[in-house]
Amino acid sequence: MLEIENLRAVIDGKEILKGLTLTVPTGEVHAIMGPNGAGKSTLSYVLAGRAGYEVTGGSVKLDGVDLLSLEIEQRAAAGLFLALQYPVEIPGVPTTTFLRTALNSIRKGRGESDLDAIQFLRVLRQKTKALGITEDMLKRGVNVGFSGGEKKRNEILQMAVLEPKLAILDETDSGLDIDALKIVSEGVNALRDPNRSMLVITHYQRLLDYIVPDRVHVLAQGRIQRSGGPELARELEAHGYAEFGGEREAAA
């Protein structure tokens, strides 16, 4: 269970999160929607521990563990996974090496033994196929030369391999064509699990037709302004964020 209480965060002297409170019970999928610049990515980075964000108040707990006191990698070991809005390219580090190192680091934290190259490839093969990720992509440097959609699929692959307790998907649907959106959604749905929570950040109702959330929250001006069931997303699609003091998003 993820429990965020009264979280405040500042970047470059500007307060972005202004007392945000949100709970995602174990096994549930919640969606966060909200206008550009509302602080959605900021929230995800603050949870992951990225440098540059100063937490000035509040608390974040994942299954009772205080995330904010942990290093970035310790948060991952505690079960947090963030699929980035803009995945990073890492030339020279093959995707397989990256994934195996990551998985073994996380297994170590769970008290499990390292997987050797062969065991790892077996795990990987199972997961790549459904996502349409080719051998060639796995050999290349992480995300290097990947299309926007391929990068997003690669994020879902990482999530599938690392099996986190809490996955935050920051606009994983942006830049995806219809087919890729289906592939990614199916990948995400396959990972829905009574022991896993998910926080899906998106601008579009369309994604939530595939990944049907248990709850939808509106984040605007640094706070959760309203929460409701999946119908809230449809309402937002129709009326925009005007009532929360934001602008309606132009349709993509």
């Binding site: 992951a48 990225r50 440098a51 990256f98």
Partner: peptide, 17 residues
């Protein structure tokens, strides 16, 4: 590259590694 470093660490890889 600090972004790459963050990305690797966010996947559980310790900073020195």
């Amino acid at each position: 590259d600090e972004d790459a470093l963050f990305y690797l660490r966010a996947r559980g890889i310790p900073a020195d590694e």
